[in-house]
Every structure is written in structure tokens, then in C-alpha cells.
Design a protein around this nucleic acid. Structure first.
Lengths: 248, 248
DNA sequence: CGGTATATTGATGAGGGTCAAATCCTGTGG
DNA sequence: CCACAGGATTTGACCCTCATCAATATACCG
């Protein structure tokens, strides 16, 4: 367990988004026992049937949580970006029921679940902040379910772009309206419950409508307010109050 | 706060499904402060923008958790049956982002979230069991997302029927293979991300295939194993180990 | 550079939506 | 006990969104 590095200051920053944390809180977070590892794209962080004893903080890179249907189709349940905390409260007495897979090279800080529980008990504010993190992830999952179930392909796609802009910006990984979209269209398709072909068409359509501009994987949102309208996107579920105003 | 009634023995039974609980545990659960109320079909248990201070135990009847899209379409996120515990851990410092609505006459026991938290601290086994309940609900949500995103209408419908059979039976509300399906086809459609018309067709198809039999809202599963195959249904996500064997 | 993964584009078709009418239930009041 | 009203379900006809299949084209990487 490395205790010397500062990897977990990213976690302190993230949790500080949810609740004001003082120096003691931050110090306690940063000194959590942890191990840092690097995985390459495609490697599994958690595999179905695993029984994880650690939570992971994504220090850099991108990952996807997904399940497979009997016909081989994949549904991505969540896209994770740097600063996301994975499975903090999944202290399952049983096995994981889905996979988490690196989509790019990722670095991870593994923190034992016991240490997280202890810290939550010792510093209730930190416990609450970690709890809030879990609730936001659940709220995002519900919003995605609505997205997949009841919005058409164009709306769905616009919604995902808005969400990624806001989340990447909140995590300090780009501007809300200009960022590198790190996913293949096939991965986006599995997140949106579409096909890669149709995602390609929808991105082309949004570009033709003057809502976005693309150069390779670099994306510019030309009119966030309009894209949010098209995407039926209301950022409240992300609980990043700063982004409440959708105005361009 | 009524303390005299035995409404919460249902909760003790439910939590006992997840972990063995002794007499002390049960006594502590049953004596939680609570209020019992009755709501009629259509009334809201939690409304978007509410800030609930209570968790609800569904004592009888059926309820749906749902979100609305901008176009007016509704996505049901979860169907709740008697013995389900609603929003135990939703101690949101912020507002609910979806609705919970009674689908039939329901009776509810409202338990203050503070009391739940206290009990979890005082009796860790009970806390763990309540925690497990939340994890199972999250696992169900993920399975539904896969269902909606990546399975065709026939498979989706069969999957829901299997799930309801297992859950109703586990809750003592019917046989796994024979129960009253208390939902309108429109409600099922909103749960499956289909239309009421197509749900009608899929139920008719499953009946024509000899997998189920219907008389009004009474449903008989004629061959559970085959229906589970058709529905790509693997009950592990419900964590009711007893139902692991899908055999007819 | 060459080879592979990714993205684009076109043609075609199927799964499920929409609309509308008919039928069936359920509950209510006479 | 029957008649009736309202909702729920069923059925049919038609059509549209998105999937599928296939051929290029483009970007990425050793």
C-alpha cells in the first residue's frame, strides 16, 4: 500500500464537489491506503463473477460498466471518466453481476472497502460525500434508462453529448462545449442502445444541423442550449449545481 | 407514530431473506416508529421535486417508479410489490428526480430515515440486510436496462413475466408459475419501453407458443424453464438463491 | 508505408409504432 | 339482475425508425 503519493487528492477534489471538506477531511482521504495500477484498453477492472474487495478511483482514462445479453449484445450501463469512484458501496456479500472494462489505458487507485467504511465512520462528512457520489451514479443510471427507453436516436445521442460535456468539464478534462470524445462509435452505440452505423448517422445529422462540429474525435458543441433542447437534457440529475443554467 | 401494530413484521421477514436475523433483530425492526397510510391507485408516493424524509415499506398493493421524457413519454424504472422497501437510502440532501406512484390501492408504512439510520448503527446485521435490499434493487435496475436496450420485444416481455413470477412468489403473493398480474398492458409497456399494443401482441404470442395461459389478469406460466430461455432470464440478479434453479 | 480498426455511405428490410375500430371486462346504478 | 359507461384489450392496416449488410473511405500505429 503506497501512502506516499498524492493520487487520492483527486478523490478529495471530487468529494469536495458534493460537500465542503476541510483540511482534516482532505488529509484523511489522501492518506487512505491504496495501490495504483495501470491497465490497457480492453482489460477488465471488474469481471462478472468477481467478488471485489476494493473500490477503484479512476485516476486517468475511460471505462465502461456493461452487461451482456444471451444473444451476445452488449449494453453499456455507465461510462466512467477520470475522478469517478467505482463501486464504493458494492460491498456485495455475493458476486458482481456485470463487467467494468477499460476503454483506454487507465490508471486506477485501488482502495480497500474496509478502509472506506472506516473513514466514513470516523469522518461522517466524508462518508456523506461518498454516499452522495453513489446517489448521483444511481440517478445517472435512471436518466439513461429513460434515454434508452423513451427517446429517439437523435435525442438520445444529443443527450449523451451534453452529459459528457458537463461531466468532462466538471472533472477538469475539457471545456463543456469543446472536448475530446474518447469513445468509438460502437461504444457509444452500446451505451445508447443503437448500432454503430446509426450513431454515425446521428452525429452527422447533428453536425449538419449546426449543433456540433467534429474533427476526428474532437468535438465542439456550437450551441449548447439548442443541443440540450434537442437532447431533452436537464442537468439536474448530475447534481452539479453550477451547471444548472443551460444557457450557451 | 403507531408502535402497537405488527405492520413491520413484513419488513423483518423481507430482511430475513437477505441475512439470518435473530429475535432481537426482529424486535428492533418491528418497533421502528412508523405511520401506516392508505393511498388509492394513481396517487403519488413520492413526486419529483419532493424531498422525502421517510422510507416507505409497501405493505400491500403495487407501485411504479417512473420518469417522464420531454415528449410526455413515461419510462417505468421499477415495479414495486408488497414487501418492497422504497428509498431506504435515498437520504438525498437534494430533491427526488423521479416519481413513485401507486398502481393499485396501496398501504404503506412510513418510517423516518433517521430511525432507519439509527437502527443500522445499533444493529449492524440489520443495517447490512437493509443495505443488501438496496443493492438488489440496483441490480434489478441494471438488468432492466439490458432488457430494454438489447433484447427484442418477445424476449423482454418473457423476461418481465419470469421476474414477476419469482418476485411475487418470494414475497408470498402467489406461485412462481401462477399469479395475478396486476398491471395494465399500458403499464407493462412503459416498463418494457414498448407500446400497449405491442405488449398485447407479445402476450398473445407467448400464449400461442404454449408458454403461458391467461384468463383476464390471471397468468399461468406453463413451462417456466422454456419461458426463462425465451426471456434470457437468469434469476441471479434477484439474489434469491432459492430460485437459482430455473427448472420447471 | 502498409495493415488494422474505425467511420462513412448506400440499399434494403424488419421490428415495432401509430391509428382506428371492435370487443371484452368491470363496476355502478337502477 | 340487467343495462350501461368507461376503461382495457385485441385486431388489422399502414408506415417509419432503425437494423442489417456491404462497400468504401479515413484515421491510427507500429
Amino acid at each position: 500500500m503506497h501512502r506516499q503519493d498524492q493520487s487520492l487528492s483527486l478523490l478529495a477534489d471530487k468529494l469536495g464537489l458534493w460537500l465542503p471538506l476541510d483540511g482534516d477531511h482532505r488529509a484523511a482521504i489522501v492518506s487512505l491506503p491504496h495501490v495504483v495500477r495501470t491497465l490497457r484498453a480492453g482489460e477488465f477492472i471488474v469481471r462478472e463473477e468477481d467478488r471485489p474487495r476494493h473500490s477503484c478511483l479512476l485516476l486517468s482514462g475511460f471505462a465502461a460498466r456493461h452487461k451482456l445479453a444471451g444473444n451476445g449484445a452488449r449494453q453499456i450501463l455507465a461510462l466512467h471518466i477520470a475522478s469517478d469512484l467505482i463501486d464504493m458501496h458494492q460491498a456485495m456479500p455475493t458476486r458482481a453481476d456485470h463487467n467494468i472494462q477499460a476503454l483506454s489505458t487507465v490508471t486506477l487507485a485501488y482502495v480497500p472497502l474496509d478502509a472506506i467504511r472506516d473513514l466514513g465512520a470516523r469522518q461522517p462528512a466524508v462518508g456523506e460525500a461518498m454516499w452522495f457520489e453513489t446517489l448521483v451514479e444511481a440517478a445517472t443510471l435512471r436518466e439513461w434508462m429513460l434515454n434508452i427507453g423513451r427517446r429517439d436516436a437523435r435525442t438520445r445521442t444529443a443527450h449523451l453529448l451534453c452529459e459528457m460535456g458537463v461531466r468532462l468539464h466538471a472533472a477538469g478534462l475539457g471545456e463543456r462545449d469543446q472536448f475530446t470524445l474518447p469513445f468509438t462509435q460502437e461504444q457509444m452505440a452500446d451505451a445508447l442502445a443503437l448500432t454503430n452505423v446509426h450513431v454515425s448517422r446521428m452525429l452527422a445529422l447533428l453536425a449538419a444541423e449546426g449543433l456540433i462540429e467534429r474533427h476526428n474525435r474532437h468535438l465542439t458543441i456550437l450551441d449548447f442550449a439548442r443541443l440540450a433542447t434537442v437532447g431533452d437534457f436537464d442537468p439536474r440529475y448530475l447534481h452539479l449545481e453550477r451547471y444548472g443554467e443551460v444557457a450557451g
